[in-house]
Design a protein around this nucleic acid. Structure first.
Lengths: 189, 189
DNA sequence: ACTACTATACCGTCCAGCCGGTATAGTATA
DNA sequence: TATACTATACCGGCTGGACGGTATAGTAGT
């Protein structure tokens, strides 16, 4: 099998393990079993567990970032465009796939604080972007933290809004960000 | 030393370990060392690690709940009173002590999903309370998740608002909840 | 004598990482 | 086109350390 496709398969398997059984159960053996590969095979592609988790985080960040940038492009009405895209990307990532998209961060948190550095600097960058989005600081922080809070709640298993609640939640944050008209409707459903 | 005061000392030590070095480093040995007690001493009070973490969570919940109830009592103007108290309690718990007050939940998350059940049912209860607070569902969910998000961000080490940002964040959520006049000002500073 | 520990030794399990080996595919050479 | 060699991808057993928990013997205060 192709090198990169196998790597991505392993990353997906790792996320699945975290999503299904919690970050404490993310062992190399579990990933191997989930992917139908031996432990040696996992270590061939990711020489250390830290490397595996780091790759998970990197993938999650870039996936999310891509979604956000698409949203910004589709809605560039001046103030709050980034905030709106961020909210939409978060909510979309929530209802979309079951595993969320946060398993790498969860795994890092549970396994080794040091690995979180990458995620932490990313949140700082997003915060800066929020603060220069033309909103008041209060709105910027509130929207960012509410959106992130939804992620965190999903990962930890805290109570989540039901379907209508989620829609209302999104609408509330969008109205806080000033409802920019969207150029088109790329995001499905 | 008194039984209960020692127990609380151990709980504080455990929280400190989590806050300082992350939930992955919460071992019985680490707690013992932090509290200046032998490992046997820790196991005397908490026969299992699970019991220790559960006690941490229980303490955190009851501390927070007490803060909220005080806030509700001080501000019982009809709609949004609970939401306002919840927000105030969250922000107060943030700026107050360094360790936050979330270490037990973090430890449970990192160590064993099963222990989180207690916290999960609590969040469901809080959610129900939010939804019957006289606000629109969107506002209720947004405020709750934003407040929780602040906790989560602090624990995971994600970017946080600076001091003025935190004040603005709180004001924003309070205004979403409808700024109830407070009967008195029990909460310091 | 009972409570609340200390100190130390130990057991069993789990797990990351290592290592020797293998199967397969491709390439060079003759 | 047969042989020799190499790289890639993976297998699976092993080891060493960490950690939860047990056990035991002893001690200081009350």
């Amino acid at each position: 099998m192709n090198r990169n496709s196998r790597k991505e398969e392993l990353l997906r398997a790792a996320s699945l393990v975290v999503a299904r059984s919690g970050p404490a159960t993310l062992t190399l053996d579990a990933v191997a079993a989930e992917a139908g590969v031996s432990k040696g095979g996992v270590l061939y592609h990711f020489p250390t567990k830290e490397g595996l988790i780091l790759a998970m985080i990197e993938g999650e960040i870039s996936t999310f970032e891509k979604l956000v940038e698409e949203g910004v492009a589709a809605d560039s009405r001046a103030p709050g465009a980034f905030a709106r895209a961020y909210v939409r990307a978060t909510v979309a990532g929530m209802s979309g796939n079951g595993d969320g998209g946060f398993c790498g961060v969860a795994a890092a948190f549970a396994n080794d604080e040091a690995i979180l550095a990458r995620y932490r600097e990313q949140t700082a960058a997003w915060r800066a972007r929020f603060l220069s989005d033309g909103l008041t600081p209060g709105k910027a922080e509130a929207i960012r933290i509410a959106a992130d809070g939804l992620w965190y709640a999903a990962v930890i298993g805290a109570a989540l809004p039901d379907v209508e609640g989620l829609i209302a939640f999104e609408a509330e944050l969008l109205s806080l960000a000033g409802v920019g008209k969207r150029k088109n409707t790329k995001v499905k459903a």
